[in-house]
Amino acid sequence: MFSTLAPILLQATGETLYMVAAALTLGTSMGLPLGVLLATSGRGELFEALWFQRIFGPIVNATRSVPFIILAVAIIPFTRLIVGTSIGTSAAIVPLTVAAIPFIARIIEGAIREVDSGLIEAAQAMGARPVQVVTKVLLPEALPGIIHGLTLTAVTLIGYSAMVGAVGAGGLGDLGIRYGYQRFRPDVMAAVVITLIVVVQAVQSSGDWMARKADKRNI
């Protein structure tokens, strides 16, 4: 039994990791600048732009208030536009990324707001330009918090990736539903659950380790 289960389990795990890694990367590439601007565009802040907050604040909140499974179905036309299909592992990356962007943006915003404002003042007194304040002070000082937040995002995305299994993507969620649930294979279900636990545990542990490495505040 194990010999037939192992290859499909391995393949499903690979698909899940691929979806999560792609969504995390794409989500960070867009969520990071969005989060930085949300944290620095307030009144009297580095890049004061109240219109930005007024427009993007509500958009971020709206995206975050839609349950993921609804979001995934609702944006199918958009997914088709980008990938050409709404079915499959690659197609699932689109809703996962759309859900990850506001999540990551809020996490980055929070981590940056934690940085002591005295450091911003010191950097400006040294002659830092606003972009340098972000790259040389805010992001390095917020790094431990950002790593913690991205770890949290990765774990959340693993959960979401199992949900997109329900709408035609591959991965561990799809395996669990089709084999474990619909074909009454409790052994497959158990294998899927255990694999998910192991993957989440590994992601969390390595995230914690990296955050600890980056944190020089308590040595």
């Binding site: 003042e121 010191a122 400006q124 002659g127 020089k216 505040r217």
Partner: peptide, 21 residues
């Protein structure tokens, strides 16, 4: 303004050092 500020040094009550450096 940043170019001008580089001609002045400033020291703070709470040091304001970067913990990551």
């Amino acid at each position: 303004l940043p170019l001008f500020r580089r001609q002045l040094g400033m020291v703070f009550q709470h040091f304001n050092l970067l913990s990551s450096r």
